[in-house]
Design a protein around this nucleic acid. Structure first.
Lengths: 133, 133
DNA sequence: GGTATAGGTCTCATATAGAGACCGAATTTG
DNA sequence: CAAATTCGGTCTCTATATGAGACCTATACC
């Protein structure tokens, strides 16, 4: 859908707005990522080590745990500390910024829990409607 | 990472909590989907027709526009109305539930905009650190 | 010597996202 | 009268992201 001459995209660009470098999207990408929110909630209980997190989130693979933590670390939400024990241990904890994300996140989670029954109802109605065709 | 005997997963299951049917995830999946939030914001300006939405969101493909709208419709966030004109026209608008999602969503978006400079800084520091290795 | 723990990386299979061609009916343009 | 455009999609094909799970190095325990 890029066949227009004078588009909203031009408007956006004129405003210096770039979809591929959008602050909102770059946060939402994390929040929407399958494991981010679960990890963040787990870390609210205090610093946790790598394998401890893995145990707390049983369905996560090591690969995704590593990757999600790296992403969060890169964005300054999570702090990674290596301790020179044998074997070495690594602790992850929320930074202040990571903490501050929890507030709006809890708003969203609260909404989700409150609306869930309505969503279930809507889905059922939609699916039954679709099945009749 | 499913090799544990007595796990949090068991705890969760005992509490009737099912990750694969989690209200929070099923909302977050939408919010994180690339186009959902953009479409929702666009619909806040009032009902819009299919191709009008396509024009407002220049980078979206028809396929993803269709799919995202269907998902939102199924969950009761968006209403789809077909008018029997020639050619037929289809209008999409926010339902009350869809409207009510905007509040927590704006909280998150506000946070994202406010924290963006800090995130940029964190990313730059992280990438420079990584480059030195 | 075998086993376990630490914190990962690597490969491969599958699921999802995206680009863009195509559709049928009707209306507009040349 | 023929060609192009508009409506709201669907379909196919490819690129990217996700996920499961084997593997790794080093140390400690039995």
């Amino acid at each position: 859908m890029q066949d227009l001459k004078l588009s909203k995209r031009d408007e956006w660009e004129a405003m210096g707005f770039d979809l591929n470098n959008c602050p909102v999207r770059s946060v939402l990408d994390h929040v929407g990522a399958k494991w981010t929110v679960l990890i963040l909630f787990e870390l609210q209980n205090g610093a946790q080590r790598f394998n401890a997190l893995g145990r707390a989130l049983p369905d996560i693979s090591k690969r995704m745990l590593t990757q999600t933590l790296r992403d969060l670390e890169r964005d300054g939400m999570v702090k990674r500390q290596v301790f020179d024990t044998k074997p070495p241990s690594v602790a992850y904890s929320l930074t202040d910024m990571g903490q501050s994300l929890m507030t709006p996140l809890l708003g969203l989670v609260g909404w989700a829990e409150a609306q869930m029954p309505a969503v279930q109802t809507a889905r059922k109605a939609y699916d039954e409607q679709a099945a009749r065709l």
